Simulated scan of single mutants.
Amino acid sequence: MPHPSAALKKVGLFATCLVNTMRPRVGFAALKLLEEAGFEVEVPKEQTCCGQPNYNSGDRNGARAMAEHFLKTYEGFDYVVVPSGSCGAMVRVHYPKLFEEGDPLKPRMEALAGRTYELVSFLSDVVGIELAPAATPLSVTYHDACSGLRELGIKAQPRALMGQKKCEVKEMEDAEVCCGFGGLFCVKYPEVSGEMVRRKTEAALASGAEALVTGDVGCLLNMEGALLREGKEIKALHIAELLADMTE
């Protein structure tokens, strides 16, 4: 049922690079959730990378150019929703830092950043959505992706929404510890990254859950890849796929 807060509100869905190229089903799941909540949703074709790789490697000019393009692309929406904690944090937390005081674009960027939300945070904190139970609820264990947890304060929200789906949450050991992806970290330090994801997948398996769930596609692909290489039988799902009943 459409939520009252959705009346006449337009959402720009920022799909992100990894969703678009590696896991498009996450984008469709996010779209389904937002439309079922009653929002008018658009996915601008002009969207590009958020610029986080540039920003993390010190290329502030490149990141600034992408921030300006993001502003041009999404400023006309009431909300911007991102199915990724890391990309959401890039926009919400770091974009305003790319504009100096006195820059006429700074207040516009701050305003847009303030109405940009990670998907689960938006559904829980802004909409207060109520979800129908899943037809076949899964037992799940949740990995708290670094950016979503530490920069956006996303911790209780996904667990509450999974509870609405009647999923049994089996907490893994060190759920808040990094999976080893870390954007450029896994490229610069592959041995360390590999050991970190090995420990993460071991913890997920030890939980006894049927599915390993997270809110960031980078973490999801890293953990899913490790599980596949090890031949482990546990689903790896983005939280949007779980909430939208798109788990197969």
Rank of each mutant, 00 (worst) to 15 (best):
V169C: 02
G85E: 00
A204F: 09
G51C: 02
F122V: 00
P104N: 06
D103M: 07
C167W: 01
R23M: 11
G153R: 08
V81L: 02
S139G: 10
A204Y: 06
G182R: 00
E40A: 14
G225K: 08
E210S: 11
E210H: 09
E233H: 08
L98S: 07
A145Q: 11
G76A: 07
K188R: 12
T73F: 10
P83T: 02
E195V: 06
K188V: 13
K232Y: 15
F99D: 04
Q52F: 10
V91E: 01
E40S: 15
S193K: 08
C179L: 05
G27E: 03
H94Q: 11
S147P: 00
L8R: 15
K97Q: 15
L112F: 05
G208Q: 07
A6N: 04
E176Y: 14
F185A: 03
K166A: 11
E36S: 03
F39Y: 13
A29E: 01
L212R: 01
S147I: 03
A206F: 01
I234C: 10
G218D: 15
D144P: 04
L112N: 11
C87F: 00
K32F: 01
G153W: 12
P190C: 08
L123P: 00
D59V: 12
A204E: 05
K165P: 01
F39K: 04
I154K: 07
A29M: 08
G76C: 03
P96D: 03
V140D: 08
G183V: 06
L98P: 00
G208S: 05
N20F: 02
T73H: 05
V126I: 11
D59S: 10
G218R: 03
Q52S: 08
H3N: 04
C49K: 05
L33Q: 00
D59T: 09
A113W: 04
R150W: 10
L161N: 06
D174T: 11
V177D: 09
E173F: 09
A7M: 09
S193H: 08
V91W: 00
L228F: 07
A65F: 09
E173L: 13
C178E: 02
D78I: 06
M223C: 10
A226K: 15
R115N: 07
A63P: 12
S124A: 10
A29G: 09
